[in-house]
Each structure stands twice: as structure tokens, then as C-alpha cells.
Write a protein that binds this DNA or RNA. Structure first.
Length: 276
DNA sequence: ACTGTTACCTGATTGC
DNA sequence: TGCAATCAGGTAACAG
């Protein structure tokens, strides 16, 4: 269920604990998740030093010595467990990596919509999963002008456009709803029809929404690792997602509350009174 | 080329 | 209580 902020928090926690350590053991519990794992993955991981981490959209990149990177996607149900030393068996733990620093890294993903690949770090931009991704919404290249240009090409609703990773890399179903609420824009508007004022509000709202969630993730537990070893998950106070009452409108007399609609098979939450 | 739908999986929740 | 239907934070393959 991870979107950009959760993946970012995972990456920060991994970087804090694992950089500089060497992989002393690796195990794959099954040959595939969404796609086949790289051939002989455990053997190819063993002995490598972990040099760094990077996030791109909702992907995690673990930079390894030898010029390769492990590419991970958590899908809908993926989690990273990080525990000290030996650990009890965990259901759906498909990949385990142990380091000489005494950490045990586990990729847990019941639905197996996630993925694992190994790529040449120098060629990472050309990887099929990463080429074609849109701008990082928290990066300096993400400007109102760029967002406007990308949305101008889309005849879908703005909500559907925001879920397209070629438009904004890393937004998912929750943060798309949250960003539109913050921008006071109806999710039913056609993307290409947004004017400059709404584009400007949406751009600011996306950045503010994601930045606040990243900050909440980092501050919600020390060292980013929760007591149960889970990385990167945190309770965040959604404004509209999963809620019935609008947190801003004065009350039932003025506002009938948050409405749920289905767009492209995904549930959207919004306040019809505030979002136009 | 663009858009909307379907499929991939398991587990939690809802409704009868 | 039990069981079936529904839904879940993603995305790629497909059909039109």
C-alpha cells in the first residue's frame, strides 16, 4: 500500500541502517513475485557491499558494489521488515538478505504485486520500469509549467491523470485524493481543461501533501524502524481519504460531507462543496 | 496514440 | 457463527 511518502520513509530507514554493510547471506523463498526473480539472485547478492539507496517514484534502488542495483517495488501489499539477528518465520517473506552488521532484511508481500530486479546501475535510467516515469513531485524539475504541460495532453479526469506515473511519479490513490482536496479541485474535472490558477494550486498542493507525509513518516519513530521491525509505515491523518465528514466545512447544515465515487476502478474521496 | 477495463494475488471486512 | 461477496494504498496487458 505504499505510495511515495511511505517508500521514501522506507528508503531513509534502509539508508540509515544498512549503508556500508556487506551482504553475507540471501534467500529467495519462491522464484517469482509479479515477475520472475533474476536468475540466481541470492548468489549474485552475496558478498556485495551496500553502497546506497535511492527512491524513484515508488521504486526502491539498493546500490551495490560491482556496479549493480537491486530494484524493488512493493506493489499493493509489500512491506520491508528490518530486524536484528535471527527472526521468527514471517508469512509471505519472499526475499531475505542478511548483512555483516547483523541486520536481517525481509521483503514481505502477500499479494505479490511487487517486483524484484537486478540492473546495471549505470543503465538504471533505461530500465523498462523506470524509463518513461514522469517528474519527481518533490524535485526541483517539477514546476507548475511542467505539470500544466503534462496535464494538457490528457482528456481523462484529473484524478486519473494524477495516478498515471508518467504525469507525476509516486502519487497513488490516497495522495491523489488528498492533493485534490488541498487544491480544492474536483477530481471529476478533465485534466486538459484546468486553467493556470488551478494548475498552480494543484502543483503546490501535491508538494505540500507529500512533503507533510514524508515529514510525518520520518518523525513517527526513531531510526525509522518500528519495534516490530516494520519500515516506513505510519498513521497519517488523511483529510478526505476514508472519511465521511469534511474536516473543513462547518457542519452538516452547510455540507453533506465527503463523497465517494469510483474513477477508473479506484475509489476517490472528495468534498463537492469545497472542490470545484 | 490515447483511454478505459481487466487481470494479477491474498487477506480483511462486510453482509446475509 | 459461517460463508460468500466485496474491497484494498499498483500497474501492465489488453481491447476499442
Amino acid at each position: 500500500m505504499p505510495e511515495l511518502p511511505e517508500v521514501e520513509t522506507v528508503v531513509r530507514g534502509l539508508a540509515l541502517q544498512l549503508i556500508g554493510q556487506r551482504i553475507v547471506a540471501a534467500r529467495a523463498a519462491r522464484p517469482d513475485l509479479r515477475w520472475p526473480l533474476p536468475a540466481r539472485l541470492p548468489e549474485r547478492l552475496k558478498g556485495r557491499r551496500i553502497e546506497g539507496f535511492k527512491r524513484r517514484a515508488k521504486y526502491i534502488l539498493m546500490r551495490l558494489s560491482g556496479g549493480e542495483s537491486l530494484l524493488l517495488h512493493l506493489g499493493m501489499s509489500g512491506r520491508i521488515l528490518l530486524v536484528r539477528g535471527a527472526a521468527l518465520p514471517v508469512a509471505h517473506e519472499h526475499l531475505v538478505i542478511e548483512t555483516d552488521g547483523g541486520w536481517r532484511f525481509g521483503l514481505v508481500d502477500p499479494r505479490r504485486f511487487g517486483s524484484v530486479d537486478l540492473l546495471r546501475t549505470a543503465e538504471e535510467e533505461r530500465h523498462p520500469r523506470l524509463a518513461g516515469l514522469g517528474p519527481e513531485p518533490l524535485g526541483s524539475g517539477f514546476t507548475p509549467a511542467l505539470l500544466g504541460a503534462l496535464l494538457a495532453k490528457r482528456r481523462t479526469t484529473v484524478k486519473a491523470a494524477l495516478l498515471d506515473q508518467r504525469v507525476v511519479a509516486g502519487l497513488g490513490n490516497i495522495y491523489a485524493s488528498e492533493s485534490l482536496f488541498r487544491a480544492r479541485i474536483s477530481p471529476r474535472r478533465i485534466a486538459a481543461g484546468l486553467g493556470a490558477r488551478r494548475i498552480g494550486r494543484l502543483h503546490a498542493a501535491i508538494r505540500e501533501t507529500l512533503a507533510a507525509a514524508v515529514a510525518a513518516g520520518g518523525s513517527s519513530f526513531s531510526d525509522y524502524v518500528q519495534p516490530d521491525g516494520e519500515l516506513g509505515y505510519f498513521q497519517h491523518a488523511w483529510q478526505v481519504y476514508g472519511r465521511a465528514r469534511c474536516p473543513v466545512c462547518p457542519g452538516p447544515r452547510a455540507c453533506r460531507g465527503v463523497v465517494q465515487i469510483v474513477q477508473g476502478g479506484r475509489t476517490t474521496y472528495y468534498c463537492p462543496r469545497l472542490q470545484r
